[in-house]
Computed example of a mutant assay.
Amino acid sequence: MSDWKKAFRSFYYETAEDPEDIALERRHTAVLVIDIQNTYLEPKDDPEEQRRWQPFFDRMSGTVIPNCARLIDWARAEGIEVMYARIACQTEDGRDRSLSQKKPGFNYLLLPKDRTDSQIVDALAPRGDEIVVTKTTDSALTGTNLRLMLRNIGITHVIVAGIFTDQCVSSTVRSLADESFDVLVVHDACAAATDALHERELEIINMIYCHVVGLDDLPGFLTGAG
């Protein structure tokens, strides 16, 4: 277990007192897995780009996907709501996308909703009636009715995992915090393009918009009988 009360502190919180203990009620807690889709695991055509991205691919296959699978299995066993967000546009040409996904460069994303590359990876596939929202925005709240569904279900605490830590994860966390949800980010079930970006973003959002915790910390936060 990590010392989550001390880890990932930015300048703003270097001298702050420790946060209170976290208490999660199963029926008011949801796990949200963000954007772990086939497109992000596809090999790069250019060998140099493949080399640049190899550490990310290694983290995804060796850490993030296995830990997200553990997180999902744990949540299902505990009766905690499991939800997903993925990037997917409704139109084949992507005319419904937000501006950020139409700009040239890395964040240019054309992922029609029925295409294979837009689907959640098989290892983390939703089961039964688990909710999946599709978005053409970074934040899973901004471009969907996720906010309404969380409120309807009675969720107050959201456990977040997925990619990319410094983009869609961070945007979603900030939106959730602004809507007064209590948010936990599972640092060993997330990734950015590099470990440096990942860790820096965790420092930025920790203790302001969320608490950054480890996967093994979560069982100790549960209250009451299962």
Rank of each mutant, 00 (worst) to 15 (best):
L99C: 01
L202W: 11
V183A: 15
T29E: 07
G94E: 01
P104S: 15
G79P: 08
V132F: 10
R147C: 13
F57V: 01
E14Y: 01
F164L: 11
Q50L: 03
N67A: 08
G162I: 06
L141K: 13
P43C: 07
M1E: 15
M207R: 15
A123L: 07
D58C: 07
Y108T: 13
E14K: 08
S171R: 12
R200M: 15
E201F: 13
L24H: 01
H28W: 04
G162N: 09
I208E: 11
V183Q: 14
H187M: 14
G226S: 13
L71Y: 02
C210N: 08
P126D: 00
R200W: 07
P55V: 05
A189M: 06
S180K: 12
M149G: 03
V213W: 01
L41A: 13
P43S: 10
Q37R: 05
G79D: 07
M207N: 15
R52I: 10
L24Q: 00
R27T: 13
L99D: 08
N152D: 14
A30K: 07
M83T: 07
V82F: 02
L99N: 06
T137V: 06
V185S: 14
G226K: 14
C190G: 03
L202K: 09
L150E: 12
D217W: 02
I205F: 14
D114L: 13
V185I: 14
T116P: 04
K6I: 01
L150Y: 07
L150F: 11
A177E: 13
I155V: 11
S100T: 12
Q167Y: 06
K5D: 01
D178A: 15
R76H: 04
C190F: 00
V169T: 10
M149N: 10
L111I: 05
E49A: 09
T144N: 10
R26Y: 04
S118A: 15
C190R: 06
D129C: 07
V173P: 08
R115H: 08
W74G: 02
G94Q: 01
L41T: 09
T194V: 04
G226H: 13
D129Y: 08
L99W: 05
L109T: 06
Q90A: 10
Y40R: 05
Y84E: 01
A225D: 11
D46P: 02
A75F: 00
N38Q: 11
T172Q: 14
I65N: 04
C168I: 11
T116C: 00
